[in-house]
């Protein structure tokens, strides 16, 4: 019998869990606590962990993005998967985005007419609604809706595939899982959120018109002319640029959390929650940055 001599033991035990895929919440090395009191060490560790986790998360997203770009330009190109992702992100979000747009436009219409009436400027409600929608509200709300509906579903689906070894199964079948699962979803987000933003603009302005003209009695001709006069292509373009960035970011974050999920059903739930929260924060932070860059104001 070919018996191999036992080798010197280098680690105390191997009864540890198998390492999971990389994640942004890696434990931080235990600091030496002899010199400092324990409560100070705990606080210090908590403070240090915030930037560490932030940069770790950025690194994870950048790594996934790099791989998605690398595999996205390589054949095979799976158009059927892309179409399915476009349908899932875009077509299935039409109703919720349309509904949100309608009520945002209507509420905004009431508030602005009510406010502007105090100094006799209620006819400016239409253009202000139009400008606010095209520049800010439409891209932000469309992206938030896509994140809540499609991003959460993506994260759950990929997370479930990860914890049941389906992603590993793809790898063993010589199918790159990033190319197969992540690339079509990111493209779908970047393409469909701008289109949904356009829909949001139209329905939102219609909602404002409905309230301002049909209920609150503003002149329809003045409403439409003022909107056409004040809202121009630059406003719409600004909104579409934001929508593109938001769509791309929301799907990237959703894929990152799902793709690297760990820890069974609880881990999948945690991944979904993290994806939605991070997406919402990212949309708001990026909104400020892009607005500041485009307008040349706000410190950037």
């Amino acid at each position: 019998m070919a018996e191999v001599a036992p080798q010197p033991v280098k680690a105390p035990s191997t009864d540890a869990p198998i390492a999971a895929p990389p994640s942004g919440d890696a434990p931080i090395a235990e600091p030496r606590s002899g010199f400092f009191p324990p409560w100070l060490v705990t606080i210090g560790r908590a403070v240090v962990s915030i930037p560490l986790r932030f940069f770790s998360e950025i690194g994870m997203l950048a790594g996934l993005l790099g791989q998605a770009l690398f595999w996205g330009i390589r054949p095979p190109y799976r158009f059927s998967l892309l179409l399915a992702a476009l349908e899932f992100v875009g077509v299935q979000s039409l109703f919720i985005v349309g509904l949100t747009g309608l009520f945002i436009g209507m509420v905004f219409g009431i508030q602005l007419v009510d406010g502007f009436r105090q100094f006799g400027a209620e006819n400016q409600a239409g253009p202000v609604v139009g400008m606010a929608l095209t520049r800010e509200l439409a891209p932000v709300f469309a992206a938030l809706m896509v994140s809540a509906r499609a991003g959460s579903a993506m994260s759950t689906e990929l997370g479930s595939m990860r914890v049941t070894d389906q992603i590993d199964a793809l790898t063993t079948m010589a199918v790159n899982p990033i190319q197969y699962l992540v690339v079509p979803r990111i493209i779908a987000g970047a393409v469909m959120v701008p289109l949904l933003t356009m829909l949001f603009n139209l329905i939102g302005i219609f909602g404002a018109w409905l309230v301002c003209v049909q209920i609150l009695g503003l002149d329809p001709g003045v409403f439409v002319e003022n909107v056409k006069w004040i809202v121009d292509a630059k406003d719409v373009t600004q909104g579409l640029i934001k929508a593109f960035v938001f769509g791309f970011t929301v799907t990237l974050i959703a894929c990152r959390h799902g793709f690297y999920a760990k820890g069974g059903a609880a881990g999948v739930g945690q991944a979904t929650t993290s994806a939605v929260v991070q997406s919402a924060v990212a949309i708001l932070v990026l909104d400020y940055l892009i607005t500041s860059i485009i307008t040349g104001q706000g410190g950037l």
């Binding site: 070919a2 191999v4 080798q7």
Partner: peptide
Amino acid sequence: YKGSIEASGTPEE
């Protein structure tokens, strides 16, 4: 056994 090969052979061996 704990990350090293302890033995290898046919079932009889």
